[in-house]
Amino acid sequence: MLLQLNNIFKWVNSGGQRIFLLKDINLNVEEGEFISIMGPSGSGKSTLLNVIGMLDAFDEGEYNFLDESVHTLKEKHRANLYKEYIGFVFQSYHLLDELTVKENLEMPLLYKKFKGSERKAMVADMLDRFNIVGKKDLFPAQLSGGQQQLVGIARALISSPKLILADEPTGNLNSKQGEEIMELFKQLNNEGVTIIQVTHSEKNAEYGSRVINLLDGRMI
């Protein structure tokens, strides 16, 4: 078992009223799964992903990740946990504009205890693996959307996470580029990486092994 959500609730207070963003979410994820989360806009998909990624807190319920109970952990420990095991991929890539491809890839390693030579080797490895060696000194603005997302995924993978969380990774791409990204995910999944993605497209969901449907913060 990689992670387990039990009776997760998340809400915000607005004008004295509780507005539920997540309602009674129960979810078990095994290592090696490829899960797609679907649902209409505003149904809470991103919120759920952020809770799983520990970027966002929840108000009630239990969350266990690799036998650690996330809900009892202090902020700092939680951060350590996700830094070590989780990689994030975003719809709008979120590459740093001021950094080159190479530097964007290197950035997560700077926050971990790697030596300069190790970092170089790991970055070179990634560039190789994603076939973007020739682009290493370009800035994000000089790349196409598909290429940017490729870099985004490479960056998420560089510190070898167990879990990749992808929020509409193909949302800004054309269908051909999207397909390539999905193929990549498939391949990564085959290599053993657990993937949870949010998607609007049935076709993309089919790459996964399981689909979770959300409506108004509830799993259906």
Partner: peptide
């Protein structure tokens, strides 16, 4: 703020 978000997500601590 976008840059800060990314850095935090990839593992930057507050001190860093």
């Amino acid at each position: 703020s976008g840059e800060i978000g990314v850095r935090k997500v990839v593992g930057a601590r507050k001190n860093a």
